[in-house]
Write a protein that binds this DNA or RNA. Sequence first.
DNA 1: TTGTGTGCAAATTGTTTGCATCACG
DNA 2: CGTGATGCAAACAATTTGCACACAA
Lengths: 138, 138
Amino acid sequence: MGASSKPKAETAPSSIRKTVQGEIIRTVFEDARCPLSPREAHVLALQIQPRIGIATVYRTINRFIEEGFLAPVDIPGVGTHYEAVGGQHHHYFYCGGCGRVYVIPGCPGQISAMLPAGFRMERHDIVLHGRCRDCAGQ
Amino acid sequence: MGASSKPKAETAPSSIRKTVQGEIIRTVFEDARCPLSPREAHVLALQIQPRIGIATVYRTINRFIEEGFLAPVDIPGVGTHYEAVGGQHHHYFYCGGCGRVYVIPGCPGQISAMLPAGFRMERHDIVLHGRCRDCAGQ
DNA sequence: TTGTGTGCAAATTGTTTGCATCACG
DNA sequence: CGTGATGCAAACAATTTGCACACAA
């Protein structure tokens, strides 16, 4: 939220440092093929460096978001996930069978046609729910 | 999740009773023009009956969902909201200015065209973000 | 050396649950 | 009356924050 209205002083750092933990977490998201939850990212980071705390993961994720490296992905019913920004425009498919989140490239047109008069759209999220190829059979 | 694998015994009630609190909460959602968060529903219910606890609101909402009266609406970045089922197919618009959730009737076609081969879609959610008519000017 | 980032634990916030009690049917 | 529903508080889970210390620059 805004940083200028809170009396909290919010001492914004004047420079960002490169740290071992930060780079590990960055790598975890870069290597991930799908959006990760903070917990998943933490587990993966722990496999590389067994001392990273969950608080560091959260703080680093938030820093990465401000930095523009990560973007939040909210899947209804599941906690917030995060993914590295960079690919082309895409959406998500959540499999109710295995719980995995798939990235779906592309986008249906006509989205802005839904917009009521006078409204301004800055962004849109589409999440499909169902069964992925592996889970569809059952 | 499945109800048969847990050793919890989950004593499912064999009948559902009509109570004062339940009817108040039902009315709150019926009268609402937009999806409500549990907290919002609680505040509205308290205006009618000042003794309703937040736990009752949650329990009642979950009962209504199983009953098919309510459906969850997840708006990225905001907590889960709930709305009365019944209208025609629609989606949502979240205003970053005033925080209100608007219902948008209609739906862009071509959604299923995004689906990868072998995947089965059971449902889709679309959330638009931006500024509503009231907030667009600023 | 300076000040940012980390670890750990406590604090918050949102949601669920245990238990004694209430009240619908 | 018997069982489902309620209130309150404690329990949980997810995320943030305070503080002392470690370590980039």
